[in-house]
């Protein structure tokens, strides 16, 4: 069982990802729905994996990705922008295009 951080600013989508993670037998951290909250959670909690939305109420989530990368925590982006929304540093990061099938998340988590 892994502790999975969810960073997602839309309620309905956050609930969906939460369900997917719980159904896969993992524990949810968050969801953190704003950049500031997400940064606090990354510092305060032990996290094994993270799923990041790119746009958090008008702010980009890259500072969270930067911190996770520094800490060596694997993460993926889940975004309506797809890979086009990524910045230079995270160009190579895994991206799940929204909407997604639970299997996509499952297979990414299994690779851990």
């Amino acid at each position: 069982m892994a502790r999975v951080l969810i960073v997602e600013d839309e309620m309905l989508v956050a609930m969906l990802i939460e369900d997917v993670i719980v159904d896969l037998g993992h524990e949810v951290v968050g969801p953190a729905m704003r950049l500031e909250t997400a940064l606090e959670v990354v510092e305060a909690e032990n996290v094994d994996f993270a799923i990041l939305d790119i746009n958090l109420a008008g702010k980009q989530s890259f500072p969270v990705a930067d911190r996770l990368a520094d800490l060596g925590v694997p993460f993926i982006f889940a975004s309506g922008y797809g890979a086009a929304g990524l910045n230079e540093r995270h160009r190579q990061a895994q991206v799940v295009q929204k909407p997604f099938a639970p299997d996509q998340i499952a297979s990414l988590l299994e690779r851990l």
């Binding site: 975004s79 309506g80 929204k98 909407p99 997604f100």
Partner: peptide, 9 residues
């Protein structure tokens, strides 16, 4: 992005 988010909702 908005369309994809709405579909996800």
């Amino acid at each position: 992005h908005r369309v994809k988010n709405t579909l996800t909702s």
